[in-house]
Design a protein around this nucleic acid. Structure first.
Lengths: 192, 192
DNA sequence: ATTTTATATTGACCACGGTCATTTTTTGAT
DNA sequence: ATCAAAAAATGACCGTGGTCAATATAAAAT
């Protein structure tokens, strides 16, 4: 069971990835066509699918990259203490997530692992999001009657809800930030 | 600007819908092919797209029908008072929503309206879900420091989170019901 | 009845993601 | 250097959702 990876493999993969990024730079994620990517990379179509299981797999990688950069940024700053601070600290992440409807849909679809026991780059991002928020909450003065893991899961759930409603005609009166702040005030602030 | 609708139109539409239901009965939603539907309905492919904007539009209608039936059932019973009762009352709805991964993904995608100012049947179902839960919560003894609309929105957000995690390899240890109960206890129960 | 106009239906056609048998290139053994 | 086996790349091909100019049918006007 030997499986030597040739060096042209990583070269081709890199060509495909950078070609995809270039294609996305003008036109965005939604408009990306596999044919365009392989043409820009100078390889055949079949090669694409030898490197990525499907188009979504490429998208997962590219979007997860961007998202991880945003999470780095969020982690780098001083830990937020209050609800508005938390929302502000997460703003780049949420902004990235809703930069395109296509992106948001894909994120949701892959927020859990695609198949059991195979966790993809986007599922990993959500895990990271959860962990970052949990650490913030532990240091902040939030309600203590429930564990901070649970609080962090809730923040994620509410953030997704608030992002979803951005696309909804029925709820477009309230802005994303206002809505999320209302949610998190009710969820995180100790009552009494 | 007259627009008389011929009676064969509704006949053809009915044929397409019942054909689609038949196709779904064996094979499920995911496996539905437009060609199969039009063959079963005895019409041409183009006719399908004259009646439904795309395949998703048909799916929206069919799934929303099923979901509305479940919501009827939920509304018909005696209003639940406690968290476990609420979860039990919503069980058919959640069961329908997660009957297939394909269905859940589509639901999420159309939970907000597809385009601004055009609210589809699935977005309407989510609105209904929200309203039903809100009425229950008003009558039940839940925390009163936040309005019941907000509480109901939270229930929806947590339910979606719990359903999402059903598909996630990282969180498959806890069952859906247990997870949702944990969420809702923390969200709905008054502290202190 | 006949003609005109609005409305429905048709099916050949296209776009695009994905497959796979075949060919080319690399690697390692002799 | 030569050859055999493994790995990678190729591009013709397929499945399926969706389009549209052409055609057929129904309703309205004469």
């Amino acid at each position: 069971m030997q499986k030597t990876i040739q060096k042209r493999t990583i070269k081709t993969r890199a060509k495909l990835l950078s070609a995809a990024e270039k294609v996305i730079q003008n036109g965005g994620y939604e408009a990306l066509r596999v044919e365009e990517v392989v043409k820009a990379a100078g390889v055949a179509k079949g090669t694409f699918f030898a490197h990525f299981h499907d188009k979504d797999a490429l998208m997962e990688i590219l979007i997860a990259n961007k998202l991880n950069a945003c999470l780095n940024q969020a982690e780098a700053g001083t830990p937020p203490k209050t609800v508005p601070q938390i929302i502000a600290a997460l703003e780049p992440v949420h902004g990235c997530m809703t930069s395109e409807r296509y992106v948001f849909d894909l994120l949701i679809r892959y927020s859990g692992a695609a198949a059991i026991a195979d966790i993809g780059p986007i599922a990993y991002c959500f895990e990271r999001y959860f962990r970052v928020v949990m650490l913030w909450l532990e240091a902040a003065q939030m309600r203590k009657d429930v564990p901070s893991e649970l609080l962090a899961e809730g923040v994620q759930a509410f953030a997704i809800q608030a992002m979803s409603l951005r696309y909804c005609a029925l709820h477009s009166a309230t802005t994303f930030t206002d809505r999320l702040e209302t949610y998190l005030d009710a969820w995180l602030t100790p009552t009494g």
